[in-house]
Write a protein that binds this DNA or RNA. Structure first.
Length: 603
RNA sequence: GGGGGCGUAGCUCAAUUGGUUAGAGCGCUGCCCUGUCACGGCAGAGGUUACGGGUUCGAGCCCCGCCGCUCCCGCCA
């Protein structure tokens, strides 16, 4: 390598040294008689000067012909910049390289979009950024995201190693287990009609590793789910996947708190306070209307079920009489909500099953609301005191079954917070991270359509020991030893203590979940068999690695922290995948495509 | 599968709500310029308004279809 320094390295201490820099032409300022070339690499940029008075004519002309993003090697002596010409915006701004040699390593054609101007580049259409991802990745913001990702991965590996974990890789070609997410299938050439599946997660392998005596396993694992995408969901994504033997829930909490503390310290140099708060599922729903609450602001749900029992306002009284609840939130300072925003909120509430969205605007010293005339003085007094109502407030109500009412207001709460942030009435510091554990989830949920119970998390989750007797008598009340780690309203990960007794697992499969014994054997037979030969008590967790990095980088989309992400429809705009394949490939795989299909280009 | 937003020059955006030859900034090309760093100055090129239909005397704008990007619901054990 001929490069002597990177482009964020030269300081006044280097003055007098002859150096060689390799990089891209970040910008070229041709003053006619004098040319400035800023050379950029992933570390930063450095100014070089081409002065015709001490350069051969052809060298000077070569420099004049350079254009943005050409790859160059520049050699020259480091010198202090003349008085008054320092550039305080860049760390190398006190010095410059007086070029004596220039090598054009590669020429660059005119770019489809600029990478040198952060203002413009950050606004470029994402379609363009994805198609020319290699250009997008040159932007300092993107380099920084990749660096944070790498640092976090390294911190994870160091920490997990210190804690005695073994990094073990598990197969990508897995067995189809049609529970949960839709899988990607891979046809087996060797036996027509059989398929591998790509793993939704290494769940079953990591439990088998515990049976295999590994005791402490981790992996930054690639997972695949053929479901529709979101800003925080890709078809393929990464998890920090962890499993441990001979432990209880507290051990997982401790471990993860230590891991996140380490990651935050090594990437952002922020000290995260531990232990994290804990909230039961019940309390999370009751206070925030969601199982992944953002606790960086208040606006909590307040219960008025007792106050409106027998109220003259029949909608509220009726909900209570029907075993439902009445809940309200105070969106402080939002009385000036526009009709459009109110309509949006009402539509939003309706999409979650509400019949409408009752409200009170507190403006000009009075309560403006179509429903307030039905309220008694006692009811008004209760609202005023429990919601701390003041001038300028907007009160919003939901009356329904407990879970529905809470979820509706939970969504409305988040919407109001966004509106208030937009108006500058609510601000959340960018470096604030509210971590918390959500615990005591119900083990089972009931599927009304299929008239059967299904696992809230997955069927290997252990019930809380004291609740086991209720498994058959009162399944609804059984709590699972499941936990979610939440930060700033984002579900960062979740896990559980697993069932390690084959008889309990069999009972859950067959008697609680009502999966036929032969089907259980077909799908999970190898697991049940493994558990017969001495399975240690164990449990684990998986953290969404992409989401974790997105939070560290302060971006709402995980596409910004994945080098080569896919679009919302699952395509790669750079490589144009997925794509048709040749008839011969299909024949080898014993696959006949019935849908009208595009022919691949002839090779 | 459903709902919303967007698509105009290489890029980011305008276009007085259906009316002349579709504009600006940046970029690009040429010329000038010895202390710039968002260099500056002068001149110039660059458009199938994503695509296909329709309504109209007239469509970037209205209608239908279609493609792509994006956000959300469903889905994600």
């Amino acid at each position: 390598m001929k490069r002597t320094h990177h482009c964020n390295e030269l300081r006044p201490a280097h003055i007098g040294q002859t150096v060689t820099l390799d990089g891209w032409v970040h910008s070229r300022r041709d003053l006619g008689g004098l040319i400035f070339i800023d050379v950029r690499d992933r570390e930063g940029r450095t100014q070089s000067v081409f002065d015709p008075s001490d350069l051969p004519k052809d060298l000077f002309e070569q420099a004049a012909a350079l254009r943005s993003e050409c790859v160059v090697r520049i050699t020259g002596k480091v010198r202090a910049r003349p008085d008054g010409t320092n550039n305080t915006k860049i760390p190398t701004g006190e010095v410059e390289v007086m070029a004596s040699a220039l090598e054009l390593l590669n020429y660059a054609e005119v770019l489809p979009f600029p990478v040198d101007d952060p203002e413009v580049a950050s606004k470029v259409n994402e379609e363009m950024r994805l198609k020319y991802r290699y250009l997008d990745l040159r932007r300092p913001e993107m380099v920084r995201n990749l660096r944070v990702r790498s640092k976090a991965a390294t911190a994870t590996r160091f920490f997990m190693d210190e804690q005695g974990f073994l990094e073990v890789e598990t197969p990508i070609l897995f067995k189809s287990t049609p529970e949960g997410a839709r899988e990607f299938l891979v046809p087996n050439r060797r036996e027509p009609g059989t398929f591998y599946a790509l793993p939704q997660s290494p769940q079953q392998f990591k439990q088998i590793l515990m049976v295999g005596g590994v005791e402490r396993y981790y992996q930054i694992a690639r997972c695949f789910r053929d479901e529709d995408q979101r800003a925080d969901r890709q078809l393929e994504f990464s998890q920090i996947d962890i499993e441990m033997s001979f432990i209880e829930r507290e051990d997982i909490y401790n471990l993860i708190e230590g891991l996140l503390k380490r990651i935050w310290k090594s990437t952002l140099n922020i000290d995260v306070l531990t232990p994290f708060k804990r909230l039961t599922f019940q309390e999370a729903i009751n206070r925030y209307g969601i199982d992944k609450p953002d606790t960086r602001f208040g606006m909590e749900l307040v219960d008025f079920t007792e106050e409106f029992r027998g109220s003259k306002f029949k909608i509220f009284a009726g909900a209570v009489a029907n075993q439902g609840v009445v809940k309200a939130i105070n969106a402080k300072g939002l009385a000036g909500v526009t009709q459009g925003q109110m309509d949006t909120m009402t539509e939003y509430a309706k999409s979650f099953g509400a019949k409408g969205l009752a409200f009170i605007k507190v403006e000009g010293g009075e309560w403006k609301s179509p429903i307030v005339r039905f309220f008694s003085d006692a009811e008004k007094a209760a609202l005023t005191s429990k919601l701390a109502i003041e001038e300028g407030d907007l009160i919003l109500f939901a009356a329904d079954q407990w879970l529905t009412a809470c979820e509706i207001l939970g969504k409305i709460r988040l919407y109001c917070a966004e509106v208030l942030k937009g108006q500058g009435k609510l601000s959340v510091p960018a470096d604030r991270f509210d971590f918390l554990w959500v615990i005591d989830f119900p083990l089972l949920s009931f599927d009304k359509e299929q008239n059967r119970w299904y696992s809230s998390h997955h069927p290997f989750t252990a019930p809380v020991a004291e609740d086991i007797p209720m498994l058959k008598s009162d399944p609804k009340k059984v709590r699972g030893q499941h936990y979610d780690i939440v930060v700033n309203g984002v579900e960062l990960g979740g896990g559980s203590i697993r069932i390690h007794q084959p008889d309990v697992q069999k009972m859950v499969f067959e008697e609680v979940l009502q999966i036929a014994p032969d089907e259980t054997k077909l799908r999970f037979g190898y697991m049940l068999e493994a558990f017969r030969y001495g399975a240690p008590p164990h449990g684990g967790i998986a953290l969404g690695f992409d989401r974790l990095i997105a939070i560290l980088c302060g971006t709402p989309s995980i596409r910004d922290v994945i080098a080569f992400p896919k679009t919302a429809k699952g395509t790669c705009l750079m490589t144009e995948s997925p794509s048709p394949v040749s008839a011969r490939q299909l024949r080898d795989l014993h696959i006949e495509v019935k849908a009208a299909r595009q022919e691949p280009p002839a090779v």
